[in-house]
């Protein structure tokens, strides 16, 4: 098979797999609470149901409200084109790197935040303000983690980064990757709206961040938003899997990471919103430490 065909197939399969990973975490949580949890088909049926449903749109909504789901979905797919999943080549790897990835995700988030305020409810504005508050802190941490890799691999391209880390023995890079793993795990928790930061399962006005923004959406648009959110979550799992464990079977790695994230979700309580910056500060400091550690340890005598 030609590389281009494989990389297109990769993006399509990721779109198909993303709800499955969400299902796995839901099932884990169900098992921990003595529930059966949803069946595998349920996440897909939910999406299909939402795609068929009628939409209710706020009277005050402008074009931003209608454009935002499409911008979010498109930018998430573009971002998925930059990340190596199970095939080492990426679809858009020739055109962009880790920095573009971060800002494609930021673009989608920006539009959703605008749309939430556009609909004219107070919850939307609150959600947007919270999301922007958190993302302004996570973005530097994520970028710094990528830069810590870049110092070692001398590239910002994700596919070259993953390939070059894969070609080295694990013990040679362990001292700094261990710290970046911690940083990126925290970033993953924030970005995929998991429990220490945000609760994906409730609509409780005091605690919700992501849910508050998409409260006004229904039908097709909601399906697009939910789906791109699932893709973004899988995208972060794949980044973790491919950058830190350059061996083994892809699906196994992703589900192992989902297990880890689910385990964290089961065993921790949601943080108060104003405690979340402390968590993100830890991610930031870990990434910075790993960057500095490379300077210290690789220092020529």
């Amino acid at each position: 098979m030609s590389p281009i065909f494989l990389s297109i197939l990769q993006v399509i399969l990721v779109m198909a797999l993303a709800p499955g990973v969400s299902w796995f975490i839901k099932k884990l949580k169900g098992a921990s609470q003595n529930r059966v949890g949803p069946a595998l088909g349920q996440v897909y049926f939910d999406l299909i149901k939402l795609f068929r449903k009628e939409m209710v749109v706020s009277e005050t909504a402008s074009w931003v409200f209608h454009a935002a789901p499409f911008v979010l979905f498109a930018s998430t797919l573009l971002a998925a084109g930059l990340v190596p999943f199970f095939w080492k080549e990426t679809l858009l790897g020739f055109a962009g790197d880790a920095i573009l990835l971060v800002y494609l995700l930021a673009l989608g988030r920006f539009f959703i935040a605008l749309a939430a305020m556009d609909a004219g409810t107070s919850f939307g504005g609150m959600g947007s303000s919270r999301e922007m508050f958190l993302s302004s802190l996570t973005e530097p941490a994520l970028l710094l983690s990528f830069f810590a890799f870049s110092v070692h691999t001398k590239t910002t391209s994700l596919q070259t980064m993953a390939a070059s880390l894969g070609s080295e023995p694990l013990t040679a890079t362990l001292f700094f990757t261990a710290l970046i793993f911690g940083a990126m795990l925290i970033v993953t928790l924030v970005e995929s709206a998991r429990i220490p930061v945000d609760n994906p399962a409730t609509h409780l006005e005091l605690t919700m961040v992501h849910e508050a923004m998409i409260l006004e959406y229904s039908g097709r648009y909601l399906a697009l938003i939910e789906w791109s959110h699932q893709i973004r979550q899988l995208l972060f799992f794949s980044l973790l899997a491919n950058l830190f464990f350059p061996f083994g079977f892809y699906l196994l790695k992703v589900f192992a990471l989902a297990l880890l994230v689910g385990w964290i979700e089961i065993h921790s309580a949601k943080l108060r919103l104003f405690r979340v910056p402390d968590l993100i500060a830890i991610a930031f400091v870990l990434a910075l430490l790993s960057l500095l550690g490379q300077l210290i340890i690789g220092r020529p005598s």
Binding site: F175, L289, G293, I297
Partner: peptide, 11 residues
Amino acid sequence: SLIHLTGMLLL
């Protein structure tokens, strides 16, 4: 490499 790792973990 383990010494490096423990050093970083100490930090």
